[in-house]
Amino acid sequence: MTKEMQIELKNQEELGKKVGIKEIIKEKYHAAMDRYKRQIILITVFFIVVLIIVILTLIPPFNDPDKRYWVTPDVLLDNYAEPSLKHLLGTDQLGRDHLTRLFHAVRNSLAFGLITGLICTGIAVFLGVIGPFKGGAVDATTSFITNIALVFPSYAFIILISTILQIREWWVTMLVIALFSWPWAARSIRSQVLTLKERNFIKVSKMSALKDMRVAFTEVLPNVLPYILLAFIMFLGGAIIAEAGIAMIGLGQQNWLTLGLLLNQAVDYGWIFPSFSYWLWLPPGICLILIVLSFFIIQSSLSRTFEQRKV
């Protein structure tokens, strides 16, 4: 290896990453801590709580949501037991510990929201970014589809599809929700992309002979990331609520133990009427409120932060 080649190699390395990754992380961490202290604490607390719940669902005595409890083994089922020290949230009609089931439901609901949110965000980003960059007919079609979808009576279609498809699989509910909840995000991402498109750095990239789609995904998309993140969080909360709503009227999926399924059972097995088992149907709703509330607060505080950054 000649000296020149060595220098050349070194140069290329320097051009690629001038500063070590460690330093970048350190720098970013300090900057972030100064600015977004409250938000970071909020998000951390939320994730720790979620993590605790997920861990609890993996270890005994909370790892088996289907385990039945008996007063006298195989004879008398310990069902509809009121909250006590043994069962903090009582038991349901089959003598299963409700707290265990609640933990599992929270975990599964979050997983459900996560996947559905990802699908929604994917659709919204794709339609929001591709239109302004392809222009012409593509843009006209995508924005027309978005505009129509915005005023589409989506709930009616969600109910229609979930009733008529007799399959009560988790992916059906997921797809039905994803199919009808993306439009507003697609529109807001599109308007962001449209304003960014007028910026000169797009012209500069074009003068470096970048193709349109590459400009869209390497130059524009990173600048829209905050909005995408916000949309994703909104979708997450929305999907969890929508799943619960569909499930509660008896049209939801049946194979994941989610908060929706718990509420569905509340209706089907008469937890409200005639058995008045408040300990069975109040907690899932409160969990639902807490989850969506925390997503809402995270979302609004993040959006405030992003807006401050823009100024």
Binding site: I241, I289, V292, L293
Partner: peptide, 17 residues
């Protein structure tokens, strides 16, 4: 805020009860 995020269908059951 709580009213906004509270699932209306569940609130329906609360009121019903």
């Amino acid at each position: 805020l709580v009213l906004q995020v509270a699932p209306f269908f569940w609130m329906g059951y609360v009121l019903l009860d």
